[in-house]
Design a protein around this nucleic acid. Structure first.
Lengths: 180, 180
DNA sequence: GATATTTTGTGATATATATCAATTGAAACA
DNA sequence: TGTTTCAATTGATATATATCACAAAATATC
């Protein structure tokens, strides 16, 4: 789940509940089957979220600095996650535990609102993704990635991008050589 | 946007803001480009939500009795809708205007909560849809539709179902003759 | 009830993309 | 610096599904 920066004031209220963590490249924030016990504000670095579909990893989201990542449904409802979150670069994150999130809600109602806004934004992202995955050609998908998330192409390996776009490694490779 | 029934008590609070409407088959709740000014609780009937993609209608959701339909993003933010909602059967709906939704929020904070829950549920639906559209074969898509939304197959025409599943009319027709 | 219109089914063909296999290139390592 | 390991490219082939064209049902209209 990728989200935008939040307003400064609300952030200050939360500061006592937050914890800074350093994550090495390749380490996991959550693994499938675990309950996700925190939400992470990415200060520096990059993560991928992926599912397993018949033993194959399908990337569903890349989350970079100044956004939030978490296994959303697992975190909110404290149920086992159906997805894994792995860092693709050495990263610095600021985390909030589910226990402290409840404290935060008690302390300031603005956080409930923020949660709503973020969730609505996630709906839009998922809706766009559904359309892109099923109604765009491989070439269109790649061009739109360049257009809307250009940094991803610089920072993520071809195989992970192909998985995210729902096309094969080979097809993406051929598309790239055509474009340049 | 399809949602589940809500709790009786919250519903009673809202009752003075609600209005009953009858919609004939083929009529529209919203058309693309209009601002969606109401949310509809479907008492009886069936609707489809669709987008235009290069002049072709793509169905994104079917909404039946005991669920809610609205052009979600348009309604919440009062911006022009990018989708249309059309009834597929003569329908009876209970509507709430955006103005009255604000009244409702003032009167009872539970409605903010309900909105959040519904939005989160919609996220899950969209996430499932994204996966289904891009990683399932035509046959799997159809089988899952039978499994999870069997009534749709009885009540909706083949062409609309095909559009919803992201496959061609002809392919769906062939799949159906194989299965029976 | 007969005719027109729309929807669905079936066959032939085209096409985008997957898959398999081999090669090249790049990064990690000792 | 050379060797090992992993990632990306390229070619050949297979395959699912789209598209086109037409026939058959079903539904609507007069």
């Amino acid at each position: 789940m990728q989200m935008t920066p939040m307003d400064k004031k609300s952030f200050d209220i939360a500061i006592k509940y937050l914890k800074i963590e350093r994550i090495k490249k390749g380490e996991f924030l959550v693994r499938e089957g675990q309950i996700c016990n925190k939400i992470a504000f990415i200060h520096e670095g990059l993560f991928r979220i992926y599912n397993l579909k018949e033993g194959i990893e399908i990337n569903t989201c890349f989350c970079k600095e100044n956004s939030i990542t978490s296994s959303f449904n697992s975190f909110i409802h404290q149920i086992p996650s159906n997805e894994s979150i792995q860092s693709l670069e050495d990263s610095v994150i600021v985390t909030l535990s589910s226990a402290n999130l409840i404290n935060l809600y008690k302390e300031s109602s603005i956080w409930q609102n923020i949660r709503l806004l973020l969730t609505e934004k996630e709906c839009l992202r998922l809706s766009d993704r559904a359309n892109s995955l099923s109604f765009e050609s491989a070439l269109e998908k790649y061009k739109n990635l360049i257009k809307y998330q250009p940094e991803i192409i610089q920072r993520v390996s071809i195989q992970h991008i192909a998985s995210y776009l729902g096309i094969s490694r080979e097809t993406l490779s051929r598309i790239r050589s055509q474009i340049d």
